[in-house]
Amino acid sequence: MQPELLQFATVTLCVGAGTLALRSAFILPGSAARLPEGFRRALAFVPAAVFAGLLVASLHPERVIHPGDPVQLRLPAMLIATLVALRTKSILWTILSGMGSLWLLSWLATLL
C-alpha cells in the first residue's frame, strides 16, 4: 500500500472511531457514568487553548517578519474579523468580514 494511502486510511479510521468513542463515552453506558469533576473542569479549557494556538499558527507568524510578504495584509484583516467575531459570535460574519477586508486591502495595495 502507498504511504499516502496508508496514512489516509489510518487517520480516517483512528480519528473517526476515536471521535465516535468520545461522543458516546457517557451516552452508551447511560447516565450512571460520571466524569471526574477536576478532569471535567480542565477539559473546559481545551477549546480556547487549542483554537488560540491554531489561530496563530495558521497566520504563519514566521513569514510576517519578512517585509513585503502578502501575509502581512492578513493581520489588519484578522483584526477587523476579530472585532466582528466578538460582536456577532457568528462564523459566517467572521468569514465574510475577514475575507472582504483582505480583498479590499489587497486591491488598495495594488493602487499604491
Binding site: T19, R23, A25, F26, I27, A44, V46, P47
Partner: peptide, 23 residues
Amino acid sequence: TAVVVLAALAVNLRFLMYSAAIS
C-alpha cells in the same frame, strides 16, 4: 500519522463534556 491523529482527537476531547451532559 500519530501526531495527526493525536492533534485531531485532542480538540474533540470537549465531546466528553457534551456526552456526559446530554446522556
